[in-house]
Design a protein around this nucleic acid. Structure first.
Lengths: 157, 157
DNA sequence: TCTTGACCTCAAGTCGACTTTAGGTTGTAC
DNA sequence: GTACAACCTAAAGTCGACTTGAGGTCAAGA
């Protein structure tokens, strides 16, 4: 298969396939002239990558899990860990969903006057909801270097 | 309250507060010299913003919802819509979680030989799982200009 | 008075996952 | 044998949400 064929069958753009190869996520079996030639198992591999992405695994992590070559040798412990992370995210999102759903039908004239909504607000503010630590929702990566304290800012960073 | 006080109480860094102000998400009640002075309701407002973020609402959307000034006047329809989006995300993540959980304990020598895992793979590949349309998980924004077809790449873009 | 630390602004940098552009090469149909 | 669509590479751009840096202002304490 050439790259266009893979793109068509997998739905992954050719540019992304090249990018994945560069990252070591996939490998072509060879070249015909300049052109990459892919084996049939590439599709399975791409599905695996899509799975990981859907679960919130970063490309780098996926690369580690599936290695560049050979058949994917996925660590079961890692799978379980990812499943647990997913689960805690789900719990948070469910809390959010219920809170929002209530707020949408709440009789209080302003949301701010509804105790339930205020409780939800408290939850969100306290970080009970917003993903902390190594959660999968990539939103809020936060903490590049200094994540030591949340206030402070002295010498203005 | 000065900006440091707000930062300490809310857990939101001063730089972020300035950024939010610039974006029109919050407003200081005035200045003392150069320094911003915030009213007490800023904390509630920040909680509201945290709530929105946790629910996957973009800052721009939040700005529209809560306006720059005045008390937040949140659209109930929008809330319900966001709750529904959240719900569909939750469903997908639950499917993922269960799949991963099974894979972690599956007896098959390689995950690739496990029918359940392969089914999960099929799901992920078919886009049943990966967020499509206006989902909240910001991962995969895709399609800036040309998202017309997924293969093709002719004239090489 | 002079230092200093907390604040200020504006511009640029960061992160991940891609996409887009520019410029070059080539297999294949005519 | 020549055109050209489809491939190639390397580098730069994009997106959102912030953070970081450089350089400046100002009020309060020694």
């Amino acid at each position: 298969m050439d790259i266009a064929e893979v793109a068509k069958r997998s739905g992954v753009p050719a540019s992304t396939l090249r990018f994945y190869e560069e990252k070591g996520l996939i490998k072509s079996v060879g070249r015909q002239g300049l052109r990459r030639v892919f084996g049939a198992n590439i599709l399975e591999r791409l599905a695996l990558i899509a799975l990981g992405r859907a679960a919130g695994v970063s490309l780098d992590e996926i690369a580690q899990m599936v290695g560049a070559n050979g058949s994917p040798n996925i660590d079961r412990e890692l799978l379980a860990k990812k499943a647990d992370e997913l689960d805690s995210t789900v719990q948070k999102l469910i809390a959010m969903r219920d809170g929002l759903r209530h707020a949408a039908v709440c009789f209080a004239p302003s949301h701010m006057e509804c105790p339930k909504f205020r409780r939800l607000l408290g939850l969100a503010a306290s970080g009970a909801i917003k993903s902390e630590g190594s959660d999968q929702l990539p939103k809020r990566r936060r903490s590049y270097k200094r994540c030591t304290g949340q206030a402070g800012e002295r010498g203005d960073m």
